[in-house]
Amino acid sequence: MVQFFSQHFSFPHEWSKVTMGVWQKYPNPSSTHVTCVDTIDRSVDPLTGIIRTERVVGCKQSAPKWAIKMLGGTDDAYVREVSFIDPSTRQMKMYSVNLSLSQYLTVLESISYTPHHSSPTTQTLFSQSAEISARGFTWKTFADKLELFSLEQFISNAANGKVGFENVLHGLFGDDEGPVKARIGMGLEWPKGATASVGGEGGRG
């Protein structure tokens, strides 16, 4: 069966700060499983101003021995991530999919950062969803076991990622809700409750 995960919460910082902080998220001590982040493409649409960034994220996961024995591979895993920042509508969307063991398992993740509807100048709404599905197995029980393990890993990474990013944002901006300070070396400029269910990469964190 396909596994689903979703959660929504807010960060106590304005949208421009949070979206700048995304590029400073790693490394952080709460997400030690992320070993490297490589930007392979970045462009700005001259008509819309939308910033598109493509990255490859390297992770080291504690894969169960039964999975490694059956599927091969190692604890090293890689994820392709594509993000879009629209300065005019103040939306950031990120999409990711696992590259490692993709012939057996697909983890599709979607993330968005938008100004909070009730406090758009001081809070940013974070929304995250994931769909995890295994395929290509003769034994359905093995596929279900792999999906459940991946879901548990995703939930753990998502929780650690929340704590880690909160600490990164606090380190960058403290509790100040004033204008964005020019101390973020991203190299770009632009204007200023979790649920899991079973249906018919874990998260990077």
Score class of each variant (00 low, 15 high):
residue 13 H to N: 07
residue 29 P to I: 01
residue 126 F to V: 14
residue 30 S to A: 11
residue 95 Y to C: 09
residue 84 F to V: 13
residue 115 P to Q: 09
residue 183 R to H: 15
residue 27 P to M: 07
residue 143 A to R: 07
residue 142 F to L: 15
residue 31 S to V: 03
residue 167 N to Q: 15
residue 190 W to Q: 04
residue 98 N to V: 02
residue 155 I to T: 06
residue 169 L to H: 04
residue 10 S to L: 08
residue 25 K to S: 03
residue 158 A to P: 07
residue 157 N to G: 14
residue 8 H to K: 10
residue 44 V to S: 07
residue 204 R to P: 04
residue 83 S to A: 10
residue 86 D to W: 02
residue 115 P to L: 02
residue 131 E to W: 10
residue 163 V to Y: 08
residue 198 V to L: 12
residue 147 E to A: 00
residue 92 M to Y: 05
residue 161 G to Q: 06
residue 164 G to R: 00
residue 173 F to M: 04
residue 97 V to D: 03
residue 175 D to P: 09
residue 118 S to R: 08
residue 2 V to P: 05
residue 142 F to M: 14
residue 165 F to E: 04
residue 57 V to L: 04
residue 109 E to T: 12
residue 154 F to I: 11
residue 60 K to S: 09
residue 163 V to C: 09
residue 43 S to N: 14
residue 94 M to I: 10
residue 148 L to A: 14
residue 158 A to K: 01
residue 158 A to F: 01
residue 178 G to S: 09
residue 110 S to T: 15
residue 47 L to F: 15
residue 78 Y to D: 13
residue 150 S to H: 10
residue 65 K to C: 06
residue 190 W to D: 03
residue 93 K to P: 07
residue 80 R to T: 07
residue 144 D to M: 01
residue 109 E to M: 12
residue 62 S to P: 08
residue 71 L to A: 03
residue 78 Y to A: 02
residue 87 P to K: 00
residue 47 L to E: 13
residue 194 A to K: 07
residue 25 K to Q: 08
